[in-house]
Design a protein around this nucleic acid. Sequence first.
RNA 1: GCGCCUGUAGCUCAGAUGGAUAGAGCAACGGACUUCUAAUCCGUAGGUCGGGGGUUCGAAUCCCUCCAGGCGCGCCA
Length: 554
Amino acid sequence: MKQLLEHLIIQALTSAHENGLVTSPAFPDFVIEVPKNISHGDYSSNIAMVSAAIQKISPRKIAESIIRHIQDTQGVIDHVDIAGPGFINFYLRPESWIRFLKRVPELGSRYGSENIGNGKKIQVEFVSSNPTGPLHVGHGRGAAVGDSVSNILSFCGYDVQKEYYINDSGRQINTLGRSVFLRYQELLGESVRFPDDCYQGDYIRDIAGRIMDMKGPDLLDQPDEKAVMFCARYAADLILEDMKQDLESFGVFFDRWFSEQGLYDSGKVADVIESFRNRNIIYEKDGALWFDTTSHGDEKDRVVVRNNGQTTYFASDIAYHYDKYDRGFEKVIDVWGADHHGYIPRVTAAIVSGGYRKEQFQVVLVQLVSLLRAGIPVAMSTRAGEFVTLRDVIQEVGRDAARFIFLTRSSDNTLEFDLELAKQKTNDNPVYYVQYVHARICSIVRKSTEMGISVIVPDDAALCLLNTPEDIALIKMMIKYPEIVRSSAELLEPHRITFYLMELAASFHAYYNRQRVLTDDIPLTLARLYLMKAVRQVIANGLSLLGVSAPESM
RNA sequence: GCGCCUGUAGCUCAGAUGGAUAGAGCAACGGACUUCUAAUCCGUAGGUCGGGGGUUCGAAUCCCUCCAGGCGCGCCA
């Protein structure tokens, strides 16, 4: 609809120029929007105001010239007026909405999709939690955001790959091994001092116990280093399996699990260091190797190989990101916890040094989650190993509620996740508010099937009966959906879908309480059933982008 | 000290690309089920958009500055 009006405006201004009514054929950026106030028409444009400076004519005069030259060949406009400082307000004929309503069933589950990706290969990397402990709520938020962003991009024509980067190398894996081995020794009756820098959680004991069951005391016969290595690998594998399970029960499936260790094994980290050394981008200072990130805006250069010969995470991160581009991704999106924001400049610098464009890399920062129970903060201490895991949360509040709530805030904002609220099946908990729409419509459709009328498609004359303010409000809401999806994809902001769905749900519930669908009036009933099915489709489409189910009954 | 994020109704938050009288939910108050699911709806009340400057026809939105809160500033991960 907006495109249509835009076309009419451009045409009108052009012919106004041909007739000498305006001085310039130029078009500044102008917008067509749905006014907040319904008395300002169905659509409104600021074209006259933004053109005033170029035309050197008053906005109202420009507006008049434009209106006079509008050629509404399709007959969608009822009337147009000029208001305020020079807004052009369009009032549409009620029938005009129908052609747009028809798009919903025509496109079905594809309704709302705008092809902005054009098959471009894009990768979204998210969660990527170290396999040293269970996933917690913060990871849950990252998972919900990353998965939804992937869904949205994929829906908009991108060829999306979802990837999880496993930090299965380096010191923290060694620490994991040490932690497990110490608990293992404890189980065998040895008195050990358990250091603060080891992982404190009970799951470490569980893993040690499993190794006990499997190996008995055999590990003690080996050199410590070997035993620790064994514990590390065993524990990491186990924890990783658990994380996979948790994510699956959260409805999140990755296309690839990428091992950091693999980058070392294949020599890719060494290759990167070697080639940048030759180009003096990596240089030696104080016995360490440094990457020149300063030339690309970082505040200082960063170490890639320490003076003890060990590589830093940054080294493998560089190799990892190059590997992504080598695999043909035109764009790479990383979803990170906001506490990692300081890494953006150095990773960006490394990517640019590698000959890629800055725009090919984008980070979605997700702010932290604070967990509450009935308004009271839940104590979370990773050090003491006391925390509520993602698994606990899914078990307690359910997958749908958890995912939906994670997406009810902009990622830029911290999120309060209240377990009691999330469990409640009331209006406080918007997930049910939205799902209830789907269930209610399914119920109506079931009823109509019993009456034997659901299969008949109404003709245009019948659809014109959808003319109450509630009908029009619903249809307008649905016409808006593709724009919401688009902005959500362009800005990588899934919460826009969430808020839209809540708004659409509100329109539906208002409709439901005011208008009856199944009546004795057959054409009207058919038309309204048609409308209801469209609403159901849009709700289902939106929920699927969020990774939330659309139940047929509740 | 520097960088990033945040500051909008009592509470939790929307308001991308500057638009007309700043919105929603919760909480408060008053109403609506012999009807397709009341997990619902309707109404009332509630505001110095953190403060102060600036840009312009027009600012919650852009710029500067100050204030408050969170996070980050390692040859840690």
